[in-house]
């Protein structure tokens, strides 16, 4: 059902989603998702509200079990792994509704993420300082995280997951609620991380932004990957235009 639009080969896939199905009660949300995520690339996932994008992230990161299908990460079947084990393997995500440790200070929020990864590199303290400066939170290190604004919380979460040195980063609407100036910087940072070899998958509703950032875009509708291809092809597709430009 999925059409390949302009992508010549699937070079080396780090994450492979195979025929994943999920239903809640009688509601079939995912009806057989097949998607290959290429190593070192930024993949965007778009689709209407309620299409099942976040559910797909939940399944990849182990928070929910698929009814059917497999998740293969670096050649191994990880479908049954618990979230913390996946995190230790380098599969790290953010949540659409930001999750930080509200009763810990900003600094402690990063400390929690400072190890526990098999993929740790560099000095975690330097890294933390760098990240906090980047997200403009250095002045608030000793503040309780519950005092942060929504946008700041979101940035803290962004810093947290980077602290962890992920191999693949799953970002669920990372730019929603962030001020535009910072979005550009975040995008640049993501590109820099990409150049260092990180694989990124992100869910985003803002089509121009996805098109600008991503190497490929997958469209989820009706519980399947409707299309997966190069940004220019997807953005100019009449069906995508209908769904997105109609809605926005």
């Amino acid at each position: 059902m999925a059409q390949d639009c302009g992508l010549v080969t699937m070079a080396s896939s780090i994450l492979s989603i195979q025929n994943v199905k999920k239903s809640f009660g009688g509601l079939d949300v995912l009806k057989g998702i097949n998607l290959e995520i290429e190593e070192g690339k930024i993949t965007g996932i778009i689709g209407p509200n309620g299409a099942g994008k976040s559910t797909l992230f939940d399944i990849i990161s182990g928070y929910q079990k698929a009814n059917e299908g497999k998740i293969i990460f670096e050649g191994k079947d990880v479908s049954k792994l618990m979230p913390h084990l996946l995190a230790r393997q380098g599969v790290i995500r953010t949540f659409q509704l930001t999750r930080i440790f509200r009763n810990l200070t900003v600094a402690e929020n990063l400390l929690v993420f400072a190890s526990n990864s098999k993929n740790q590199k560099g000095n975690s303290n330097e890294r933390a300082i760098e990240l906090l400066e980047f997200v403009h939170l250095s002045g608030l290190v000793n503040d309780e995280a519950s005092t942060l604004s929504y946008g700041q919380s979101k940035l803290l979460e962004f810093a947290q997951v980077l602290m962890h040195s992920p191999k693949i980063l799953l970002l669920d609407e990372p730019f929603a609620g962030i001020n535009p100036g910072l979005i550009d910087q975040m995008m640049q940072h993501l590109r820099k991380l990409q150049s260092e070899g990180l694989t990124i998958v992100l869910i985003e509703h803002n089509l121009p932004m996805v098109a600008k950032l991503c190497d490929s875009i997958a469209v989820v509708t009706n519980g399947v990957i409707e299309m997966h291809g190069a940004p220019d092809v997807i953005v100019n597709d009449s069906r995508v235009k209908e769904v997105f430009l109609g809605g926005h």
Binding site: S61, G62, Y63, M82, P83, H84, A87, R88, I92, R93, F95, R99, I100, F101, R102, N103, L104, E108, V112, F113, N116, S117, Q160, V161, H164
Partner: peptide, 16 residues
């Protein structure tokens, strides 16, 4: 402490 605050986020940090 992380688990107390948010189990789901703690698991995402690799915490059992």
């Amino acid at each position: 402490l992380a688990v107390r605050d948010d189990e789901i986020a703690a698991a995402r940090g690799g915490i059992s």
